[in-house]
Nucleic acid binder design. Sequence first.
DNA 1: TCAATCCGTATC
DNA 2: ATACGGATTGAC
Length: 690
Amino acid sequence: MTEAGPPTAARAARAGAPAEALPEAAAETAGGAGRQARRPEVREPAAVDPVARVVVDVPLAHLDRPFDYLVPAGLADSVLPGSRVRVRFAGQLVDAVVLERVAASGHDGRLAYVERSVSAEPVLSPAVATLARAVADRWAGLLTDVLRLALPPRHARVEKEPPPDPAPPPATPAGPGGWTAYRAGEAFVRGVAGGRSPRAVWSTLPGDDWPRRYAEAAAAALGAGRGALLVVPDRTDLDRLDAALTAVLGPGRHVALAADLGPAERYRRWLRVRRGGVAAVAGTRAAVFAPVAALGLVAIWDDGDDLHAEPRAPYPHARDVLLLRAHLEGTAALLGGHARTAEAQQLLATGWARPIAADRAAVRAAAPRVTAAGDDAELARDAAARTARLPTLAWRTAADALAAGAPVLVQVPRRGYLPALACARCRAPARCAHCSGPLGSTSGHAVPACRWCGRPAAYWSCPACGSDRLRAVVVGAGRTAEELGRAFPGVPVRISGGASVLTEVTGEPALDVATPGAEPRAEGGYGAALLLDGWALLSRPDLRAAEEAVRRWANAAALVRPAGAGGRVVVGADAGLAAVQALVRWDPAGFAERELAERAELGFPPARRFASLTGAPAAVADLLDAARLPASAEPLGPVPAGDGAERLLLRVPRADGTALAAALHAAAAVRSARKAPDPVRVQLDPLELF
DNA sequence: TCAATCCGTATC
DNA sequence: ATACGGATTGAC
């Protein structure tokens, strides 16, 4: 029949002829005027395991499952489990990753051939494939989206480079190191060293060298013949951890993975891990997927830092991916920080993890003396301080530390976090009526408040022109530094934040003005710290405002010398607040207990699990309609989400979180199958609830 | 009665 | 996006 007219591949397939007997080449020849005729290549399946099960890179929920393709004999050695291929899917060539090679397919239709191999490198390990599927399920997302997070872009030249020389044997034998300072600390490290899988939440002593402790824990895992994966929030932390790992493990026994390495170096280091060249990995959030073989330990530092939340779909959180991984791969787990999140507290409450903490006496000996300055509205009597409009306590504390020859840390709100206010008519800076500190306000609705003493300024009028209208002006760390510089003439002022971050400063007297997360470490520790962003932190309409305040304060205060060595901290917030008390008593654990209890009471995370649906109102309603939610699901909202979109929250008991995610994934599949035009963003356990 | 066209649905 | 199968239409 085919001789009668120009055959098409489609007609051949319908007629039941082997697809490759009448390949696309024939059709092209027939249709293409003047094009060189190509000999019909006859492909035949590989002799062994001719079927490749692949995940295609197509962002449609109803196609989020494996598809089977035939492996042509010519590609039998390059289409391997975990390797990247190109396949024809619904008529177009798409990227795909091979999950496995099998003898036969369960698909009853005709199988297409794998079009070509991108690389024989088996980038996707079986363990990471399992993890990625679990992550997709947990966050109601697509496997291919998770693979985009888990697998770095290929760099062909790097792939062909010869492997580096193997690392020399370890520099030091593994031991408990500094973990002996903590109750249950030594037991944890010995457990890891013995190949067991203890799980712990570690309350780090202020001033302790946490990167060193993490390196010691990693050494314990390596000593047991297992791998270690350590995740930190940012590049500064990574550099410190990197150095500690080199010191403890010796050179060449670990890699640091960061997003800003550049494609070649990133892929080079990642491949060393995948090829088994190194067993210890330190990295920022994307490293949670690092293909460490025989993983024995996962660890995360400061899990409350919002940098751990992945901003790309399906928005997994580094801590939760690591916990999932610890569960799937049976590894030890360590969550360390100066503060403690409600999520970490939840792990302790359920018995999944155990606390590692120092005795109260050791905590008291290591912590600085913390005083609240929320009530301290009195202006300093000192003439210089009066000029600079600093509250007495803050000024005196800083002055004493400087006089004693130590640097002082000043923590100020992030730029844009708390816009300062000025007179709407004459532009004069708005000042606090009590202490003359700068007035600021959180986004819009809150009553303006003083950034120094924290007092709200409900009634304000401009002393210069009498107007009572305020306007927001952007004041960053620079302006604060300038104002503080005037209070302490002759003292150098350094700024750390935003684009220019200082990591390490000398122990000379100086003022270091820093935004949260960008505090430098001072040689010998700071003599004092002024935490001036209290009001900004605590007045935010955010579920985690208090927890976040404790976290930022504790991280800054941990850089200050112990009280016994003169270390002082002044926090600009009301002493009656639980968050302030947590810092004064250095008891972030007690605060987390209380916080978790409160959230359980109110039905907030992590006591309950949430999903948020964001999109056009009709689309959100459509998705909700298509979803077969667990009976326990409680809709909250919807509320306007800007740009005509709205946001609906769904709340379930913890036990139904999996069912909620599954229902939302299935509903998204129904919608994508019917080509529903308006997308809905589905987010599980969103960080921002209000 | 058969081929051309339309439409819904699956995509290996 | 495209390609298939089934339903529908229309010319003989």
